[in-house]
Design a protein around this nucleic acid. Structure first.
Lengths: 256, 256
DNA sequence: CACCCACCTGTAAGTAATGACAGGTGATAA
DNA sequence: TTATCACCTGTCATTACTTACAGGTGGGTG
């Protein structure tokens, strides 16, 4: 049984902790852009101290986790740059552990558990990131992406209060961050098709034939087929059913 | 500016209120079935007293709100029966107000505001439901349904603490209730198509032609068309693109 | 101006899908 | 046993779609 199901987890929290968490969770509901999300972190700092924070969204794959999106709240850019160039993010044991167990981790605890020693990599030490809490959420209904949030500093004691805070907060950070990512993706994808192409696609979804659409739009059937052909090319689809499926997945057309 | 955005809303809450809310919100994240959802309400009763509770999910329509799903937590069955048979749910001003403003309502306050008088309908009075708080969430990204939650009793004072509790709690009740509804719908819809039909549909979505699928499944092309035809009939679609769209909407095939 | 792009249109050949006809098997439930 | 249902198969005529070819218009940008 993880602490998630334990009813005593909140006993580590004070009333003012709980109120701050409530406010944070409430604010997380209305995050639409990355700025809204970033704005949560100063408030998290009021709950427990950290210098650096990082958010990551990943998608499960055959080979492992693929990073979809990262929001660097306050990590040193150089650390990120070196970590990415040296492929640390793909091989790091803590990250693997996160995307396997999705439980709260404390670097020294995890490393002791995995390697039977506590030392961290020199890169992190150079930047004054001697300790770090990480916690993420697993892919769930309504979202197929997993997440990971890092809170790092020179020294962070492992204590149950921080664990409890993360367990209450992380699922909502995950929802907010996923939501922002999907917004962003839909925006990017939205530019792929022209307005006429989206219009045609929306009628296709409704079961209309080329002839139907030509009447609806007041253009020739040939032109409808022309638009459809362009949609197929742009979406990499081989026929109309796939085009509808791809467009739906990319958020280009409404589900309804 | 509504209380939602006010940073002082939580000042009406005690630390123990906040902890109970946190626990409730956390539990709401893992609700998969209606029982899980119903189990939240005894915990809500620890926050503020009420005798009867009701959850409703509705979909915006040209004419108004259509009820999609209701969970009767503890309302008198007879009250519900009479309300439905007398069409109260369609004409009730409080319900209309909920699905317009989506703000916390207190029956006597709302009625005073709308009708300049406080009296309630005799039906509710007969059942000892003299007062009621209602609050819901508007349709949002990732869910097109609005919700309404009622908490009723013989006497409920209007106070800011209860309002604050509802404002913090309701969005999460909404998410949980919507999620349960979608689960239920997907389950119902899932029985509509046979396993072979779903298999064919999933290949259609991938852009495969009838011939492709016949090779993949090791059956004749004619049989693939037979299955597709049955899918079209069952889903009420006129062609493959629409079938893919409908199946996606009903949760019959994965989006990915 | 030249260029790109969204938008529009035509012809035509080949391929795919639709919807009707007809029929057969095997498992499971009344 | 009779019935039902998922599953399977065939033919055939009609309609729809795909993908080439060819081209024209108007708006905006470098």
């Amino acid at each position: 049984m993880t602490l998630y199901e334990s009813s005593e987890t909140c006993s580590y929290l004070s009333g003012s902790d709980a109120i701050k968490l409530l406010e944070l969770i409430h604010k997380s509901l209305t995050c639409e852009m990355e700025d809204d999300f970033t704005a949560l972190f100063p408030k998290i700092q009021e709950l427990f101290p950290f210098k650096f924070a990082l958010a990551m969204l990943g998608q499960q794959d055959n080979n492992g986790m693929i990073m979809l999106s990262g929001a660097n709240i306050s990590f040193p850019e150089q650390w990120l740059h070196e970590s990415i160039s040296k492929n640390y993010l793909q091989v790091d044991a803590v990250i693997k552990e996160n995307f396997t167990t999705y439980e709260v981790q404390h670097w020294s605890v995890t490393r002791k558990k995995l390697f039977r020693r506590e030392d961290i990599n020199s890169l992190s030490q150079d930047f004054g990131m001697r300790e770090c809490y990480t916690h993420g959420s697993r892919p769930s209904a309504g979202g197929q992406n997993g997440s990971m949030f890092c809170f790092s500093s020179t020294s962070m004691k492992y204590d149950m209060r921080t664990v409890a805070i993360l367990e209450f907060l992380t699922p909502h950070l995950h929802l907010a961050f996923s939501h922002i990512f999907e917004n962003k993706q839909a925006k990017v994808n939205n530019a792929v098709l022209s307005s006429r192409e989206k219009e045609v696609l929306n009628w296709l979804k409704q079961g209309k034939s080329s002839w139907d659409i030509s009447v609806i739009l007041g253009i020739s059937e040939r032109t409808v087929n022309f638009h459809v052909y362009n949609v197929l090319q742009k979406l990499g689809a081989t026929n109309r059913p796939q085009a509808v499926a791809v467009a739906t997945r990319l958020g280009l057309i409404d589900i309804g």
